[in-house]
Simulated scan of single mutants.
Amino acid sequence: MRPFPRLHLITDTRPGREPLAVVEAALGVAGEHLAVQVRVEDDATDREAYELAARVRALCAEARAICLVNDRLHVALAVGADGGHVGALDLPVDAARRVLGPYAILGATAREPATARAAVDAGASYLGVGPAYATRTKDGLPTPIGVEGVAAVARAVGVPVIAIAGVTAERIPELRAAGAHGVAVIGALSQAPDPVEATKALWDALR
């Protein structure tokens, strides 16, 4: 079985962003070592989500990278993605597992050990843990849990922990030392002047 990717890119579809260009840049650097999670804004239509996910899926397939879809699991199934990810307000993990089937990759969001263990027991393949640090990429996030919070979850479960929110290349060493398998980024690439160089910095810090 191939190693689970340490670098996860979440698409940024806010106005003025170029998600496909960023995905292409990141794939050009990390290739099969990258997981791309397609996430769209809440007001995006299913058709818009499908069209973006289909294009990302094609890019990932060419690079042998993993493609996941956030929240909209029917879109994940429709485009043949490798799996999906559910947050606290999305389908329960056990229900998401039934939708995707027993073999798909299923991520779940957690921020403390009890909910992390419950998510794994319900069928999560990996956990997105955070917010690790403060971030302005997404509104309405709870208080950051910090490196200590990431470490507490990592100690509680046996699946890969992917730290998210406010992640930079400079912060990766302390997150890895805390037990994080890898990191998920949005703004670190979507807002970077040069996404290729930004991906190189992240990937170098993870290796």
Rank of each mutant, 00 (worst) to 15 (best):
T45K: 08
A188S: 08
A26I: 02
G87W: 07
A26R: 10
R111Q: 07
G146W: 10
D204K: 15
I10H: 01
A78S: 14
T13F: 06
V120P: 14
G187A: 11
L202Y: 06
L189Q: 05
R6L: 07
G158D: 15
Q191T: 05
A108W: 10
P193Q: 05
T137G: 00
V79A: 13
T168N: 08
V40W: 01
D139K: 15
L91V: 01
R2W: 13
G166S: 07
V75G: 07
V147P: 09
A122D: 12
G28I: 11
R14H: 15
A110E: 07
R55G: 02
A65I: 01
V22K: 09
L106Q: 11
H74L: 09
R117D: 01
T11Y: 06
A63C: 05
P144V: 07
A184I: 03
V23K: 10
G87E: 09
V159G: 02
D94F: 12
E170P: 00
I66V: 15
D194S: 03
L100P: 01
P142E: 12
H8I: 11
E32K: 15
L141R: 12
R47T: 14
V167Q: 09
V86W: 05
P195G: 08
L189Y: 09
G179K: 05
A49F: 08
V38I: 04
G187F: 13
A88I: 03
A178P: 06
V79N: 13
V129G: 07
D42A: 15
R39D: 13
C67K: 13
A54R: 15
L52R: 12
H8S: 02
V150L: 12
I164D: 02
D46K: 03
G158L: 02
V159Q: 06
V120H: 13
V86P: 03
L206M: 04
P160V: 08
A154F: 09
P142W: 13
H85A: 03
A169L: 10
H8Y: 15
T13Q: 11
N70C: 08
G101Y: 10
A61V: 04
A165F: 04
Y103N: 11
H74T: 06
E62H: 14
G166P: 07
R55C: 03
R2S: 14
T13G: 10
T109V: 11
L202M: 03
L189N: 01
A184V: 03
D43G: 00
A61L: 14
G149L: 03
A58M: 04
V196E: 14
D71M: 09
P15D: 08
Y50H: 15
E174K: 10
L141E: 13
A88N: 10
A53K: 10
L20Y: 02
E51L: 13
L27G: 03
A114I: 00
I10D: 01
P144Q: 12
P193H: 04
V129W: 08
